[in-house]
């Protein structure tokens, strides 16, 4: 653990309980997460283990039932709309499903312009804004001239997710929370998108929380890995520690679920 580095985001006993009575679900159960500046942390767990719920709490999109979140060592305060907006300059997200991530009534231009405005570029001249948008698009191999005045739903899933990365490129947040950003994308685009993410991370020095159900992917991208089962972190450590020497049977199972080249491909786990 790189102890000389600063803690960027950490939680203590973070819990989320949905519903009550017979419908009571403990989606996230007393989670302690430590995120150091500049590292890539993976949170791995099967579907329904509470990864997205945890992500939304970290983003401040839903409230927690219990526990605290500290941002740069200070207890996070997002009690007012203004403080929230300030917080969201520091933490941004890419969601799992690109098809539902965009407002279908807004054009691509407005998605990117929102980012420029959020960074305080509202009064920039139009040409400067176009230049910035063009740069962001070309970073993810998209041509802004072809996208302007189009709607996001006119793009493919992979292109939409790349546009999301272009968004992050413009926003340059301290922390990026990527919630299974490639799980809805066809296999060909997947590697491209991962590479772009890692490239962007290097370029602007972001801290990344990478959420996935694919432990192989986690090993590929991350420094630290947290294993999540039924809302709890059952194991964590460096990627090598956790994946090469797993202690928990659950981690073992996740590793065994990753298809091997020499085995017959089981497409359902991909």
């Amino acid at each position: 653990m790189p102890s000389e580095k600063q803690i960027c985001l950490n939680t203590s006993g973070l819990t989320k309980i949905y519903g009550f009575g017979a419908n009571r679900t403990i989606a996230v159960d007393h989670v302690d997460l430590k995120l150091y500046e500049g590292e890539v942390v993976s949170i791995v767990g099967e579907s329904g283990s509470g990864k997205t719920t945890l992500a939304k709490m970290l983003l401040g999109l839903i409230s927690s039932s219990e526990g605290d979140i500290y941002f740069q060592g200070v207890k996070r305060d997002i009690s007012s709309q203004k403080k929230k907006q300030e917080y969201w300059k520091n933490i941004q997200a890419i969601f799992q499903d690109p098809f539902s991530s965009y407002n279908i009534f807004n054009k691509i231009d407005s998605v990117l312009l929102d980012c420029i405005h959020m960074r305080g570029g509202r009064n920039l001249p139009r040409e400067k804004k176009v230049e910035m948008m063009t740069e962001a698009c070309s970073f993810v191999n998209l041509k802004f001239e072809e996208l302007t005045n189009k709607y996001p739903f006119e793009l493919s899933g992979g292109q939409m997710q790349r546009l999301m990365i272009a968004r992050i490129f413009l926003l340059k947040p301290k922390i990026l929370l990527a919630d299974e950003p490639t799980s809805m994308i066809d296999a060909c685009s997947r590697a491209t998108i991962l590479d772009m993410l890692m490239q962007l991370r290097k370029e602007i020095g972001m801290t990344v929380i990478f959420i996935t159900h694919d432990i192989g992917l986690a090993y590929y991208v991350s420094d630290t890995v947290y294993i999540m089962e039924h809302g709890r972190f059952v194991e964590f450590g460096t990627a090598d520690e956790v994946i090469l020497h797993p202690r928990e049977p659950y981690t073992q199972r996740l590793i065994n679920d990753v298809p091997k080249i020499y085995e017959e491909w089981d497409l359902t786990t991909v």
């Binding site: 939304k56 983003l59 999109l61 709309q81 929230k84 907006q85 969201w88 300059k89 941004q92 997200a93 969601f95 799992q96 499903d97 539902s100 991530s101 965009y102 407002n103 279908i104 009534f105 807004n106 929102d114 980012c115 405005h117 959020m118």
Partner: peptide
């Protein structure tokens, strides 16, 4: 929905979100 979440993350006000998202 995620598009509403994304709009929040883009710093839009409640009124803006209600009216456009």
């Amino acid at each position: 929905r995620d598009h509403v979440n994304l709009s929040k993350l883009s710093g839009h006000s409640i009124v803006h979100i209600i009216l456009t998202d």
